[in-house]
Design a protein around this nucleic acid. Structure first.
Length: 589
RNA sequence: GCCCCCGUAGCUCAAUGGAUAGAGCAACGGCCUUCUAAGCCGCAGGUUGAGGGUUCGAGUCCUUCCGGGGGCGCCA
């Protein structure tokens, strides 16, 4: 937010160093000063000193860094709008004239409103593929991570200035789907799904199909036959498939709506499968894939051999079964290209769990070998899965799942109970809205606040714990800002330079608000939702501390006017961070 | 066998290679006739799994171990 000042100071420092025959760093790193009640920016001279040492000068780096910092301090004077400059342990610390900078931070947040922190348009188009549920199965807590990660990374990129296409890729056919239909036809012909909780019903029938198959000696053959009819596009089977698939898709949409997640582009595995056979044949023709079907084997690509690698690295990719049906590796080859045919993409991101890392390495390498020129634009964004206590993997087949529907229901119920306790006089309609917002936020937050590479373990107790570092804490801070501004009534005062000595908590809050734009950029660069949750939490905490220390409505007129503007700025920053996280923002709690 | 990830306070997790490694939970002690206590303050808690290396500087990068998890030819 203070790029201009930093640039100017950079230039001055460079000149100064040059005139002292001290080597100049190409790039300046600016960081905030560890907080001590004042607020400012700092840079260090360790690298410069180290460069001197390397060029043969006899210097001790830390001492020399401090020396340089002092030289700069002494010859620098006080830059405009700064209150003081100090040289400490190799660092040059520049303290802001808090009044002027505070005004700018507050004004920026208030004026830019919903756009506060939004990056400049970059003329870049990125596709993010996420969620990828399998139809005819339930949606469980394990499916939540890709949904939330994909959705919020998309928001982050969008907010940072990139154009985004949100894509979903449904697993809508295959053996498991046929198995479901086989059981449905035998035991549930003519039935319709219930009005709500569709995915549970679909999941129950899937589990039943697994049980029934185990005790039905004819089952295997019947399923194979049905699969063959599906492949032959038998109208009866295709109709049943389309209809039942839609039930699943409708069920998924219930959950997406609950989470406020939308997609711009839907892909289906069945769609890719149609083109996959030709793609595989081409790879055989071009000598990349090896056809072992004549000896009862599959069609494979021996990647390491083709690349002349001694160590096992890419291993072998199987594209087609010995019975000439294609595998998902082949579909992914088709889809990767199709995305770029559909959109002029600069980047194509796959949000898929870490267990598929090798798969994507293989697919991308295969495309490269086949001469596709866009493999530098495709990127697998892996995340660790959600387990159950005792390192139990969630599996529809094993029945070791916590259904997403149940979690959502429980979380909202719990939020409702807490609301009754905390704020009894709320009317019923509002309370239901609050419960929804708090419940949904509470289950989203923990996964977004965890590094993608870290395994998550689901347990009911912590999932329903709304205390401390959690979404309700941030939502509550927002509600407090809201309450203050409402009570104050009327429009905010005009832009104000505070005349009073700012309280530490005020300065701290202003600093957090000022950091928001750069947090967005860093999160976008690293695809890290964690950056946003951390910052939202820090904003909320800074506000809560301010709230407890600094009277707003009861302060003297001038202080009150400034603090109300500060509250509005904090509100905006908190609001925008929750928006990016796609966590609901309740007006009251 | 080859490859990937994780290891930080009692527990769950943070920390663009930068200054004194921070939060929450749990424990203990305070703060509601004062802007909503889903809050705030205090207290305590650490050989960052171990060794070696790179660097002015390492929880962070490299390397060797140890412990845990995951992936590796016809599931997705």
């Amino acid at each position: 937010m203070f790029d201009q000042e930093q640039k100017q100071i950079e230039e001055k420092i460079k000149e100064l160093l040059q005139s002292h025959n001290i080597p100049v760093e190409e790039e300046f790193k600016w960081a905030s000063i560890p907080f001590s009640g004042e607020w400012g920016t700092s840079t260090s001279f360790f690298q410069t000193a180290a460069q001197e040492a390397r060029s043969g000068k006899q210097v001790k780096v830390p001492l020399r860094a401090q020396e340089i910092a002092e030289i700069v301090r002494d010859h620098f004077g006080l830059p405009e709008r700064f209150s003081r400059v100090e040289a400490v342990r190799g660092y040059l610390n520049l303290y802001y004239q808090t009044g002027e900078f505070s005004r700018r931070v507050v004004d920026t947040a208030v004026q830019q409103g919903a756009d506060f922190g939004r990056g400049q348009k970059q003329n870049q188009l990125v596709m993010i593929e996420f969620s990828q549920p399998n139809t005819h199965k339930a949606m469980h807590v394990g499916h939540m991570r890709t949904m939330l990660l994909g959705d919020v990374v998309a928001n982050i990129l969008e907010f940072s200035g990139v154009d985004v296409v949100r894509a979903n890729y449904f697993g809508d056919f295959g053996r498991d789907v046929i198995k479901w239909m086989w059981n449905f036809q035998k035991r549930h012909a003519g039935e319709r799904p219930p009005a709500s909780n569709v995915t549970r019903w679909m999941g129950d029938l899937y589990a039943e199909s697994t049980r029934m198959l185990a005790e039905d000696p004819e089952g295997e053959a019947e399923i194979l036959e049905m699969f063959a009819r599906w492949e032959a596009k038998d109208p009866e089977i295709r109709d049943m498939w389309r209809e039942t698939r839609q039930w699943s898709l409708d069920g998924f949409n219930e959950i997406y709506e609950r989470f406020n997640i939308r997609f711009d582009q839907l892909y289906y595995e069945s769609q890719m499968e149609e083109f996959a056979k030709d793609a595989v044949l081409e790879l055989i023709e071009s000598g990349i894939a090896v056809d072992e079907r004549h000896k009862g084997g599959p069609v494979i690509i021996k990647l390491d051999e083709l690349l002349g690698l001694e160590d096992e690295t890419y291993r072998v990719l199987v594209l087609m079964r010995s019975d000439s049906t294609t595998l998902y590796s082949a579909w992914d080859l088709v889809l990767a290209k199709k995305k770029f045919e559909d959109y002029p993409l600069d980047r194509s991101i796959y949000v898929v769990d870490v267990r598929q890392s090798l798969h994507f390495k293989q697919v991308f390498k295969t495309l490269e070998l086949a001469g596709w020129d866009k493999t530098d634009k495709v990127f697998h964004l892996p995340y660790e899965i959600v387990n159950l206590p005792g390192n139990v993997t969630m599996s529809s087949r094993e029945g070791t799942v916590v259904l997403l529907e149940d979690l959502i229901k429980e979380a909202i119920q719990r939020a409702y109970e807490v609301s009754l306790e905390r704020n009894p006089q709320l009317d019923e309609k509002t309370r239901l809205e609050v419960a929804e917002a708090v419940g949904i936020g509470a289950i989203k937050y923990p996964l977004l606040a965890r590094d993608n590479t870290k395994l998550a373990t689901f347990d009911w107790e912590s999932a329903l714990d709304f205390n401390g570092h959690a979404a309700p804490y941030i939502q509550y801070a927002f509600v407090r800002t809201n309450s203050l501004l409402k009570r104050a009534g009327g429009p905010l005062a005009e832009s104000i330079i505070p005349r009073h000595e700012l309280e530490t908590k005020e300065v701290e809050l202003i600093e957090k608000i000022s950091e928001w734009p750069q947090v967005v950029q860093r999160a976008a660069k690293e695809f890290k939702t964690l950056e946003i949750t951390n910052h939202a939490y820090h904003l909320a905490r800074a506000f809560n501390e301010f709230y407890n220390t600094c009277p707003v409505l009861k302060a003297d007129a001038e202080v009150r006017d400034f603090r109300l503007r500060l509250v509005a700025a904090a509100q905006q920053a908190i609001h925008n961070s929750l928006e990016v996280l796609n966590i609901p923002v309740p007006e009251v709690m």
